[in-house]
Design a protein around this nucleic acid. Sequence first.
DNA 1: TATTTTTACCACAAATCTACCACATACATT
DNA 2: AATGTATGTGGTAGATTTGTGGTAAAAATA
Lengths: 239, 239
Amino acid sequence: MVEKNEAKLIYVCDDDKNISELIKMYLENDGFEVKTFDTGEKLLSAVRTKLPNLITLDIMLPGINGFDALEKIRDKNDVPVILVSAKDNEVDKVRGFNEGSDDYIVKPFMPLELVARVKNVLRRFEKAGTKVERKVPEALDFSNVHIETSTMQVFINKKPVSFTNIEYKFLVYMFERQKEAVTKKDILADVWGYEEDDNRVIDDLLKRLRKKLDENKAKLSIETIWGVGYRLSDGAKKN
Amino acid sequence: MVEKNEAKLIYVCDDDKNISELIKMYLENDGFEVKTFDTGEKLLSAVRTKLPNLITLDIMLPGINGFDALEKIRDKNDVPVILVSAKDNEVDKVRGFNEGSDDYIVKPFMPLELVARVKNVLRRFEKAGTKVERKVPEALDFSNVHIETSTMQVFINKKPVSFTNIEYKFLVYMFERQKEAVTKKDILADVWGYEEDDNRVIDDLLKRLRKKLDENKAKLSIETIWGVGYRLSDGAKKN
DNA sequence: TATTTTTACCACAAATCTACCACATACATT
DNA sequence: AATGTATGTGGTAGATTTGTGGTAAAAATA
């Protein structure tokens, strides 16, 4: 079930321009649309802007390395990635697969081998029904606030409002629990990963979060349960 | 008796992406809708957002393990779970622990065997008339006072009334014992954690609690059993 | 690398809770 | 009724918890 109207988009990331151009040539010859990047940063930036159908990623890169780039990509997206490494090193292989790469190829390789692997991975993805899309297409709702977990977007009164990473994480955490009472200790453990609870980071976050919810006329409030924790509640903040 | 309108949703949790994708493929081939997760945390998050018809859960997972995840899931939901274990010797643990899981399967297994077990468990669930649903939050009732333990909220005549930590704790303690007589010593030990009983804190608490119940027209009173302790009682406080 | 954004930390203020004291009242026993 | 003990209650001080503005550190981004 290959789409014929639109060419599949592939991002190729390698600091060696000769290599990336070579790969590009071969892939384009097979009908793919290809964009090349010489650093992980540029790749990440492009991924944020538009998600490709597949990425080939060199491990040795100036600046952010391939593993870290892979992790960041996989953190938020479900897109097949083929790692490219300079050495045939078992450690790298194991690590690469654990981090979630879908295939692995060692330099020097024949361009046609890479093309074959690209096609193979794409086929596997299609067969498994894994569409290239943002993860977990579910939504969370509470009052007039709507969270699209697939795109990590929060809407208040249908209007998108931007939240920072932790703000978002905390909000999702509370939304998943709706009106439940949640202890500060649990929040620290689950949202921050802290074990000790001699910490004021939650108060700090809440300060910012409440302000933002307020400014955007969210009809909900994060109630304080004195000495315990917090709970989502209907209705705007009381004054 | 397969529903044709809507595919049954199955969550597959395994840290090995190859395995979860394999399972996914086979299950989808049988008409199920499948979502995969590589950590227990992600699974739990998804379960909170949307409850599936069945879950297959690997025991060995990074972060929270399968047993703990199972416990958390079962704590609040009625949903069939099939455990997957890597080693045969873990099966003993499964058996010992069993109560929670509806079935288990040992790796390596044939995909079709898992599919068969999935269908079997689903059939059993349907036959037993058990619906996949969230467990109703626990509530305590006495006269016109209603306590939601999940949200830590107290309602008097359907209206939320706020209680402090100890007030709440004490109220729950009494509600759990309904009209039983409870000694001061027990209260001190169970609510405060004190061993000695040369203490007037209870009287102090009761002063505040009775006032609050009174002000909010609760049709119950905390009767004093002279020289012994207290007991919940129907009807408003006598004057 | 430089710049911007995000997050954490600090210190002080405000809110809230809780225990204690003192005295009043109720109860049981004699 | 008198007495001693237990309980009720108002007031209050101290402790704890939370809110908040300012700022530094860290992280993300350009």
